[in-house]
Design a protein around this nucleic acid. Structure first.
Lengths: 249, 249
DNA sequence: CGGCCGTTTGAACACACTCAAGATCAGTGG
DNA sequence: CCACTGATCTTGAGTGTGTTCAAACGGCCG
């Protein structure tokens, strides 16, 4: 792994931007202290591979900042993204020592890592960690199942609209803004190819459908990546979701 | 819910066929006793709806016998199956009081149910239950992600071969047979339409591809449902998976 | 027998893919 | 400053896989 740096100085958990959303969210101060003892930071540059599927994996961890992708490849090169890792998302599976998927840093990424076996020990003794991990895993399972509907049943245009909705929605929650009625603005964190891998399309089809949504006024584009959504409910209509955006209540 | 019966007599946990695989698998005898106090059986007939998405849901439970499907529908009727529930699989999400998906009994189904709030209480006090549920949820997440590759990137023929592989594999583990080298025989638990909903295809395409696999000698059919796979590795080739069948090690 | 359900098969079509050429932009070096 | 390169993206034309619409088959049950 080139260019990857272990940072000797990992910030205090009290100052951590993902303190209240990550796997440690429910921990009391004494539990946090024990986690603090086994944690270390790692930094990855944009484009860099974090983990290869099948490789031995002796750590688990949380994304602190940046975006990474989780994907699965067939021998002939066909690739399907199966997860998008945002700040606070968890990487790795306790109890498993090899990686099941490829993990690639899309932007510069900082991870808060724990060596696997001390983490597993700690988890059995700290129900708050296991509870939070269960909750996060159930959320991911719901997201995966929602995505199965997108992959299996939606048209190319609906797929693009669905992805844009999700990014817009998530951007809004990360930035602590509620569902603002006004126009929503964000940057696409993915290349056309990554979007295609996410949606089970080719990059040409992604490009065409984005152009079509732009032509129809559903979105505006500045450059290739900067998106403005003048009317969020219009976009959600295009995605084929109910008006509430498919949020699981 | 027509035809659904609550059975007053729920068998002893000690005699339960899913005792060692369900959410209660890790429980000690005293923990099992407490579960036993809040459990009750429910029986559903083939074709019957067990839960409607959006409905209030005040129980969780395990499939004891039979097969049920978990699926998601769009307003215009397009349907995507997101899970196949087999004996020992868990239904419902602790902490959520409405159902996220439709659950339909494909065969006659017996479920071992727990009222939600006593179960949630018990779960916080019984790490063995939460641990097992986490493990099962992680397995389901892996299955969902593997399915995303099928939905997003495989051809119709590969999709059918993938589904047949999975059913064959699961049938083999349920029946405690190891990976027998000889021919594998099983019954399809799904209609062509249900298979289509699982695979993101139309039922006509499912029918055509099954006919094609039969013509090419990859499978043999007796009637519509009884399948013989003369050479499992041939089937897995057709599915586009590696030789080991995509099992996560 | 007639009706229903699940299934198979056929013919025509459409959506997304493939292959290919250009456009746009950032970075690099003359 | 401008030309060169490579990466990313857009657009076009033709093709093919899976869909749609339609008809017919077989088994089951009243």
């Amino acid at each position: 792994m080139l260019n990857e740096r272990s940072l000797s100085v990992a910030p205090d958990c009290g100052d951590c931007p993902i303190r209240h959303r990550a796997v440690c969210a429910r921990c009391e101060s004494d539990e946090l202290e024990r986690l603090e003892q086994i944690k270390y930071y790692r930094k990855f540059e944009a484009g860099q591979s974090i983990i290869w599927a099948g490789d031995r994996m002796d750590f688990v961890g949380s994304v602190v900042s940046g975006i990474a992708t989780l994907s699965q490849a067939m021998e002939d090169g066909r690739t399907q993204m199966v997860g998008l890792l945002l700040p606070s998302d968890f990487v790795g599976r306790p109890g498993r020592n090899t990686a099941a998927y490829d993990v690639v840093a899309t932007t510069d990424v900082v991870m808060c890592c724990f060596r696997r076996s001390p983490f597993e020990d700690l988890m059995t003794r700290t129900p708050h960690i296991a509870q939070r991990l269960l909750e996060m895993t159930l959320d991911e399972l719901d997201a995966a199942r929602e995505w199965m509907l997108v992959l299996g049943r939606k048209t190319a245009r609906e797929k693009i609209a669905s992805l844009l909705s999700i990014i817009a929605r998530r951007d809004a929650t990360l930035n602590k803004r509620g569902a603002a009625a006004g126009p929503i603005v964000f940057d696409l964190p993915l290349t056309r190819e990554a979007m295609a891998d996410y949606l089970g399309l080719t990059l040409e089809t992604v490009s065409r459908q984005i152009s079509a949504l732009k032509k129809d006024g559903v979105i505006h584009l500045e450059g290739k990546r900067h998106v403005t959504v003048p009317d969020m409910s219009r976009l959600m209509d295009e995605a084929g979701d109910d008006a509430d955006g498919g949020l699981l209540v």
